[in-house]
Amino acid sequence: MLRSIESAAAKRMAATCFAWALAMSAGSAFAADAGDNATWKDGKHVYDKVCGYCHDDGRVGPELLGRQLPAAYAAAIVRHGFRAMPAFPASYIDDASLQKVGEFIATAPAPKK
């Protein structure tokens, strides 16, 4: 087993080069997506692309905006989930972005009806 892993080194190098070439050929995609923390621009971005789909207008989950919910409360629900609300690990929403979306939810005004 070990031997076969070692003997794959050359192939791995080839794979790396190929991946690098692909990255260069799709430069704009990489720039947009590079780095895990670059995934989320700010708290509103997380809200719009994840939370809002269910929570806007209370269409599936409860309305969150305009209720001054503490950021720590939102963070706890995101990490633990709650009943049907799924849990999101740090790989999906990193700690800094979670803090930002918590602050966004805590301070955003109630949506105009």
């Binding site: 991946a19 692909l22 990255a23 050929s25 799709a26 995609a29 990489f30 947009a32 997506d33 590079a34 895990d36 995934t39 799924p86 849990a87 690990p89 790989s91 999906y92």
Partner: peptide
């Protein structure tokens, strides 16, 4: 890890180590 109703992100057997690839999030080519 969003396979809700099919096991979500959790492993099939207790104690398995999760290899989470969510951070491999590049659109390589369209």
């Amino acid at each position: 890890g969003r396979n809700f109703g099919y096991g979500s992100a959790a492993p099939v057997q207790r104690g398995q180590v999760i290899l989470d690839l969510k951070k491999m999030n590049k659109i390589l080519e369209v």
